[in-house]
Design a protein around this nucleic acid. Sequence first.
DNA 1: GATTGACCTTCCCGTGACTGGAATCCCCAT
DNA 2: ATGGGGATTCCAGTCACGGGAAGGTCAATC
Lengths: 139, 139
Amino acid sequence: MNIREVAERAGLPAKTIRYYEEIGLIRPLRAANGYRAFRDSDLHKLTFLGRARSLGFSIEECRALLALYEDQSRASADVKALAERHLGQIAEKIEELKAMQATLADLVRSCAGDHRPDCPILTGLASGKTCCTDEKARP
Amino acid sequence: MNIREVAERAGLPAKTIRYYEEIGLIRPLRAANGYRAFRDSDLHKLTFLGRARSLGFSIEECRALLALYEDQSRASADVKALAERHLGQIAEKIEELKAMQATLADLVRSCAGDHRPDCPILTGLASGKTCCTDEKARP
DNA sequence: GATTGACCTTCCCGTGACTGGAATCCCCAT
DNA sequence: ATGGGGATTCCAGTCACGGGAAGGTCAATC
């Protein structure tokens, strides 16, 4: 398969596939003319990667997942642990966003939104208290 | 005020403040020795920026907010519109994350998480359907 | 006056995960 | 041979900074 075909089948841009090769996530063969020659296994990996990415796993997490995927003697506990950690990160992000949402919604509610210049959103940003939770979790 | 003092008072890293000057968000004066000389107005703007950023506004949105903040003849409707658009983006992100969370939680629930290699998470990623909503909203 | 040491300055590189574009090469059909 | 649609590489840019080097400045101490 050439790159265009895999791209369509895996639902990823060709650019992304080249990038994944560059960082060592896949290793397609090469034809005599220099074109990448993808096997079914490459397509499977790319599809896997696309799904993992769409669930928000980082590239490095994807690399780990892919290693587990390929390791016939893995323990499912390892996969589950990785997934649970990621679930935790998702939950954290949701909480952060909800806190922003709450603060901002308050400000918006209190703003008349007319032709006059008085605006509680601006004064709130200028002198209000700092949002909510810590913007970025302290390590 | 020197940069360290403003940094502490505004709650921003000095690096960030230099960056904000570089991209034209603030224009502090300069002392004879080349040091930045911050006025109270600079501090106010930086504080404003820090809060807006912590609510998730992008730099360009912050630039727009700052312009409104400084424009005595603004209409509060303009500010409100900007804030509401941002609220919409926050809500979208939350929905995306919740969809990921739901899908991934399902997978995690179905995984035994023991020493055996069988793992519904991996098979789900390899052959499952594509997550949920579109990962990235089409523009 | 010399030497600390804590500031400040600029400059350049790196991050994550790509995306866009230029220049070049290859294959196939007319 | 010419054209068009592939493919390849490499370089630069994105966003919002952070790290660190190399060097100038300030205040205080010896």
